[in-house]
Amino acid sequence: MVERRNKPSALASTPGLVPQPQVNISHGNQRVSAVLPTGESVEVMLYGATVVSWKDSDGNEKLWLSEATKLDGSKPIRGGIPLVFPVFGPPPANHPTSKLPQHGLARTSRWEFLGKSTSESEAAEADLSVKLDFGLSAATLDEAARALWPYTFGLIYSVTLTRDSLTTSLVVTNDDNKPFDVQVLLHTYFRIPDINKIQITGLEGAEYIDKVDNRKIKTQETPAVTITSETDRVYTPKGGADAPIAIVDQSSGRPLYKLSRDNLGDVVVWNPWAEKAVSMPDFGPDDGYRNMVCVEAGAVRGWQTLEPGDAFEGAQTITLA
């Protein structure tokens, strides 16, 4: 090999090229991670396509993940952003979803990683993003799962990371020759400093189902929701999917997270509080309820009926303050 006296500089230092996001598959092909050149990151398990981590550029975790949850595919993951499909909560009797486990089959199925896409290489560093796509269909379900809900369907789930936001979107298609009903929910566990010092805004005047109080229909009378006991409510904001929701630090009045929704008209607010947290074997630590709150975008008050060939798409974007 001839030694050149004037070697060109390494390609990595080529002027004008912005460093690109890095995507890796790890943990025995069980986890997909993406990292922006500025340090922000996201991790998604192929089991359930559950987002289990979202960190800012300083490495601060934004999602709450139970220390007691299983990440080996043996049980649904407690924390992060589990996917609820095609039924929310315990399935109703005498309904086509009645044989399914609570919250459906998406969060307990192994998804396929379909690939990544990134912003253009010449984009400014602040505009860099990476999108991860995952797929699940009736054809990829195991035989036992197909027997519980025997419809032909397709799901495409996309997770998009930017410097200051995380977007998760789900597209459901009916590939069957008969209609079916579905419910969809993005069951987001937010990490917070102290449950006693946050409030949730954007729900004033909204009707909600209070699942802790015998599913009574109530109206949010105060400007903000505060959590002081076990809370499990299904809100329908007055502004529909256009109503902005925020998790606010009461001491400073500063939003910690802002939540915008697309075609997801309901918002579930959940915190187990002390007694229930202790009774849940996959919830840990026992006082972990102090540092989490679920604010979940979904379409769950009724059913979305998809005719053959129809599709339903819903999305949320979480923006950091």
Rank of each mutant, 00 (worst) to 15 (best):
P82F: 01
D194T: 04
S117Y: 00
W270H: 06
H27A: 15
E313Q: 14
Q22V: 14
A246I: 08
L259H: 05
R191F: 00
L166G: 09
K70L: 04
K99R: 12
R163V: 08
F180N: 12
H27I: 02
A49R: 06
K197L: 09
T168V: 10
V130P: 11
Q304S: 09
S169K: 07
H95S: 14
G314A: 11
S260K: 10
V51I: 09
I156T: 13
E204W: 00
D164C: 08
L128D: 06
I198V: 14
R233Q: 10
R4A: 15
R301L: 13
F113A: 05
L166Q: 10
V184F: 03
T228Y: 11
L128W: 02
T222L: 06
P21S: 06
S121W: 03
V84D: 15
R5V: 15
N6W: 05
V248R: 04
N291W: 01
L132N: 07
P91W: 03
T152Y: 02
R31S: 11
V172C: 13
K211A: 15
R233W: 02
P150F: 03
S169V: 02
W303T: 11
A311P: 01
G302T: 12
D133Q: 07
D72Q: 02
A10S: 12
F88L: 12
P90G: 14
A277F: 01
L46F: 01
S121Q: 10
Q183C: 02
V2R: 14
V23I: 13
Q22L: 04
Q316E: 11
T140H: 01
Y47V: 03
L320Q: 11
T167R: 14
G59C: 02
E122H: 03
V2C: 09
V295R: 05
P90Q: 13
D56L: 03
L132I: 08
L185A: 14
K75R: 12
Y257T: 15
Q22P: 06
D176A: 10
N177H: 09
F190P: 06
V225C: 04
L203S: 07
A206D: 09
Q304Y: 00
V159Q: 04
R78N: 02
H27W: 06
T168D: 08
T118Q: 12
T188R: 03
K99F: 01
T168I: 07
E207N: 15
Q183N: 13
S109N: 03
G135P: 04
F180M: 13
F283M: 04
I227F: 03
G298S: 14
P308T: 02
A34E: 05
M1D: 15
P82V: 11
A10H: 06
L114M: 10
G154P: 13
A321N: 09
W64I: 10
C294G: 14
R110V: 01
V225N: 06
Q199W: 00
V182G: 08
P91M: 07
L148M: 10
I25D: 05
V52R: 05
K55L: 02
N24P: 01
A243W: 01
S252Y: 00
G314F: 04
T167C: 11
S119T: 15
H103R: 11
